[in-house]
Write a protein that binds this DNA or RNA. Structure first.
Lengths: 225, 225
DNA sequence: TTTAAACTATGATATTTGTCATGTTTTGAT
DNA sequence: ATCAAAACATGACAAATATCATAGTTTAAA
């Protein structure tokens, strides 16, 4: 089993604030897990009882709305932690996590994290800073959801994907979303998302082949209104 | 000048996690301030350099969207802290704070709060928990903004106001919002907010007299769709 | 490789929401 | 108490978005 203190991934999240001793202790308790594309990591309402550290792959965090539709609240990528919020609040998860491609994650039990949160002010402050960052992002999304058109929000999502994910040899985004996922990211009907993506394709802003998407004109997407 | 360790307000926020000594130290640095209705506490982009603790009154936190409209992200009430997020991230404010009625606030300089954040794990953890709660609320708002109709969102706002604010002798809400504020809370045009409020009034869900609003049928509001 | 299921595409139409115009009411300063 | 400015109200219309129907395409499992 690989050791946390030697893991590159820790650089990207609050675990970097821990000392070697703490990381070795956590290594002893953590479990590693492979998650297949489409598999559910956990569901809304379940107790997670720990945090996941994403070593590889992407997953979507979504929430079921009153009208029965899923809203994707966040995409989680390599290096991110999942489940901190529920852990800190000592609540069941308010979100469902589903893998968008094959993932490798480490699970760190709640007690270990709480131990460091209560004893290590540096770790605690770092996690506070990460959560503050997430809150700012969430506030920005609220404003966008409330004020931007569906077309703008979809353009924003495409820009975000282009800036966040790797591309394959042909320039296609290395993350595969269904049209329904796009719809659930921007909060619209699947048909509307399909229509707008087709429109973007016709205007040369993107190119698509099945679910594979390539961003052709990033600046053009920024000008969408 | 009143002392923090004797202030009832501290029960409602993270300051409760501090010991008497720390509270007395903070008392010595804090400043008290009265803010008139409509007055700007701080603007988006300004450095706050501390946190405000709301002793009395209500204020709105809003963000200017790309299209020039304000989106109200949160209402802040007696007992709440303002500015923690920016303080923790060491960033300028991403929100504008405007008083909705006459307020009394205490301002605690950044250094004092940071001192406790870095030295007092209990305080730091408590603030982490508060921020986790805010993040959950923000995620819920994202889902509502994305999935609910304007009418439902406006009904939600009215339910929230009824459950959060005091009523006067005649049952009117003790917080006065303009129709534009209602529009900026739900993310719609002012005319749309006006129309829907009129409609709610006609159906007996609410009663209005100028800006004064009384909730007549809370359960009816919950059934709006 | 085949084949059914899932996903994508698109037209027609209904509904929601925004915008503009105009008139009325309320509010706050004098 | 008066009056102008701000806020509220409402109609008419335009634009955005959702819904329903139907057909074509892709995907993944047998």
């Amino acid at each position: 089993m690989s050791k946390c203190d030697q893991c590159i991934i820790k650089q990207f999240n609050s675990l970097k604030a821990l000392g070697k001793e703490d990381l070795i202790r956590i290594s002893g308790c953590k479990t590693s897990r492979f998650v297949n594309k489409g598999e559910v990591l956990f569901r809304e309402g379940e107790s997670i009882n720990g945090v996941y550290c994403v070593k590889d792959g992407v997953c979507k965090l979504s929430k079921l709305s009153a009208n029965g539709k899923d809203q994707i609240v966040k995409l989680v990528v390599r290096g991110d932690l999942i489940g901190q919020r529920s852990l800190v609040s000592d609540e069941k998860s308010n979100l469902t996590a589903i893998a968008l491609n094959d993932m490798e994650v480490c699970f760190i039990p709640k007690n270990e994290v709480m131990h460091d949160l209560t004893n290590n002010a540096k770790f605690s402050l770092d996690m506070l800073q990460e959560m503050a960052k997430e809150l700012k992002t969430a506030d920005n999304i609220i404003v966008d959801m409330a004020q931007k058109s569906v077309k703008q929000r979809l353009a924003d999502v495409l820009i975000y994907l282009q800036e966040t994910f790797d591309k394959d040899d042909n320039g296609f985004l290395n993350v595969i979303l269904s049209r329904e996922d796009y719809a659930n990211l921007v909060g619209t009907a699947t048909e509307s998302a399909i229509r707008i993506l087709s429109q973007f394709k016709k205007s040369g802003l993107i190119f698509t082949k099945g679910k594979h998407v390539k961003i052709e004109d990033l600046e053009g997407l920024r000008r969408v209104e």
